[in-house]
Nucleic acid binder design. Structure first.
Lengths: 260, 260
DNA sequence: TTCTTTTTCTTTCAGCAGCAAACATTTCCC
DNA sequence: GGGAAATGTTTGCTGCTGAAAGAAAAAGAA
């Protein structure tokens, strides 16, 4: 029997029973248990099933996991960026945080400080920032985007226009190889544009792994940023490219700076 | 049965019941209690639940961060009020929730519904309401009050004035013995006044233990409400007094109604 | 309150089943 | 036939589970 045939049978079995025991499948297919395990391994890799002691169960993509298998490494990289960003914030600064995971972490970090004014459209960031009780936190109003806990839309933009800030920390959803920024929705794009206009200095927060990925909506070239904070792992070619575009680059620990 | 299967069943059970007892799960899964505890331990590690003495409760990633431990009895009373309030909300309603703990619980309850438009100045309520992804949730903007996760101030009021809603659920900080309402801050008072003006129907959510307490700032008589939802334990004298003031009274299970 | 009882939890141990790794064998294809 | 890929076998090890005993927490009694 061919491997592909076994796979097909296993899939069929799983779809019917939603679970499969190694012993049972080994019996049905008349192959050794090792082979079944190896098949399971491949199918797990394909995302079809989840292996478990004794067998496997059907993979349910909609299953609620919360932050079960959070990527610890990405998290550490983000934390690195947060530390650098926080160091750039001066006491009594008025800053804006656009929505995103790194900004949520930054907000939490800044909640330890005092005397800051923090403006944001991300509800989680707003709550994080207000935790310490020593800063002034302003949350923009508007309709909540379903997947990312931030508000957006015309109300948000109108709210935003009333403010002027010293510095805005921006997160995007993709950065192409020639350093063009992109985001996943029209609303996000509009908000970032508005925030950029309302700020003296614009800083991009970006995990180095984001580079090379493209999101749905093009936002503009990286030169719309005054500075970028990313991880040291960023490939040298990008470091040089950013430097040549006169954007300040902070790679977490050691800064590799161009002109302002 | 595989460990992964048990995990999945426990997850499902928790999502449906919000809490799970060791004994009960041990019974359902037909495994020893030790095994259930070990499963709980793993799921706790994954951030899915929080273990308690005797069982576990669902870990709500947002709620948990912003709440201290709650008084269980008060919580049950509040839940009673929430059930009644939720029953009053019709599909496609446009409702406003002012800040407060009961409204945060109500928001979570309503997140199971769909087609609602929910307006609120409480960030936790906003996040709770948007959890299901099937409702339109609008969060008012403004400055965050340090102690209660809601926004207020002139921006909030200006935001609020743009909207008109079918029903507003109001929470206050105190109700005197002659049924005058009071709150703890000027901002809160202004927001409630504004919300009352923007709504067809005003409902007060109030734990029966609140009566007799007075907060800093007087808001007005209970007649500014169209209806009140509280617990059955409310003393009869108050029930009669509310009835005589022509305010509809819902005492959770059985409604004791006056005229509109 | 303080003490006692009961329930629940943690830890340890033992038995078993399942597993990975290395190596052996078979099959397939050139 | 020779090499590569797939499959099978053996071995020692790990992980899962439940029982039991002691620790801790909650509930009840004085």
């Amino acid at each position: 029997m061919f491997a592909a045939e076994r796979k097909r049978i296993i899939k069929k079995y799983l779809l019917e029973n939603s679970k499969a025991e190694v012993v049972k499948i080994s019996d049905i297919l008349d192959v050794s248990e090792v082979t079944v395990r190896r098949d399971f391994e491949k199918l797990e890799h394909e995302g079809f099933l989840i292996r478990t002691h004794g067998g496997a169960i059907l993979h349910d993509p909609h299953e609620k996991t919360y932050y079960a298998e959070q990527d610890m490494e990405a998290d550490e990289n983000n934390q690195e960026i947060v530390e650098t960003a926080a160091a750039l914030v001066k006491d009594e600064d008025i800053i804006m945080l656009t929505g995103g995971h790194i900004n949520q972490l930054l907000a939490r970090k800044l909640s330890e400080r005092q005397g800051l004014t923090i403006l944001t459209n991300d509800l989680v960031a707003a709550l994080n920032a207000s935790a310490g009780g020593m800063n002034r936190v302003i949350c923009l109003g508007g309709e909540i985007e379903q997947d990312n806990f931030s508000v957006s839309g015309s109300i948000t933009l109108r709210n935003m226009q009333k403010y002027h800030v010293n510095r805005v920390f921006v997160e995007v959803d993709g950065i192409s190889e020639n350093l063009d920024l992109s985001v996943s929705s029209q609303q996000k794009s509009e908000l970032i544009e508005s925030a950029v206009q309302s700020s003296d200095h614009v800083t991009l927060l970006c995990n180095y792994e984001l580079i090379g990925k493209r999101a749905f909506l093009s936002l503009g070239p990286i030169t719309m940023m005054n500075s970028v904070i990313t991880n040291p792992q960023l490939a040298d070619e990008y470091k040089i490219a950013i430097y040549n575009k006169n954007v300040i680059l902070y790679t977490s620990i050691n800064a590799f700076e161009g002109n302002v």
